[in-house]
Design a protein around this nucleic acid. Structure first.
Lengths: 111, 111
DNA sequence: TCGATATTTCCAGTATCATCGAATTATTGG
DNA sequence: CCAATAATTCGATGATACTGGAAATATCGA
């Protein structure tokens, strides 16, 4: 996962409403939820929700598909996997966030 | 980790420069780096960097300590651990981002 | 085709974020 | 105490994000 994609994903999740939407979709599983149900569950005006859904979609965190009049949104678990993977590898010093104590030897910047 | 803290951490990392700073500090390990070294490594004006460091610090992702004239910043691995933990548990459907397929039964919101 | 439903796009107003030079604060050595 | 060094805070400016009602678009059922 590229740095730019990571930043897009992070900023997409870095919002109260979008984080709530995403969590809801994760709980909903691969089947997803129509926009209307999300709006009702989170008590958000349709236009505001649409803005947030578009944001999450642009960031690649959710997918959109149509079912009749409804647009179904679902969490993209692969993308989320990529994000968590990046954070673990690049921001936790590898492993599972182990403090990276006693590094075998200080990593020296090449030249 | 509370939702508010998660959002603070996510929005702190959702910026090109701050993500670079954080990664640098992760690589630097628990000993951290003085602000000046970071500014030089990332080629950022001192005042801009200071703004970003304050942001990361407010979010709890880095710690600050003084060593003479220098202010040493270091990644807070515990906080990062908490963030990744939250994302894994709440945004990946538990496990390690398994698609959470075939949920035993739909979780119903308690009244 | 028409009316109802589901959702998005448009738009304007407000708010928050990012930038960076200049001024300020903290610390050290002499 | 003073000059030098390290870093922060201030302040003004420009950019970007969020909000939500009204209008537009897509789809369905009859």
């Amino acid at each position: 996962m590229k740095s730019k994609a990571v930043i897009d994903a992070l900023s997409a999740l870095a919002n109260e409403h979008r984080l709530a939407v995403f969590r809801l979709l994760v709980q909903a599983g691969p089947e997803g939820q129509p926009a209307g149900a999300i709006a009702e569950a989170l008590d958000l005006p349709a236009s505001s929700l649409s803005f947030h859904l578009a944001h999450l979609n642009r960031a690649g965190l959710i997918t959109q598909s149509r079912d009749g009049r409804s647009l179904i949104y679902a969490a993209d678990f692969t993308a989320m996997n990529g994000l968590v993977g990046f954070l673990t590898e690049n921001c936790c010093g590898g492993a599972s966030c182990a403090p990276a104590v006693a590094p075998t030897q200080k990593k020296r910047k090449a030249s």
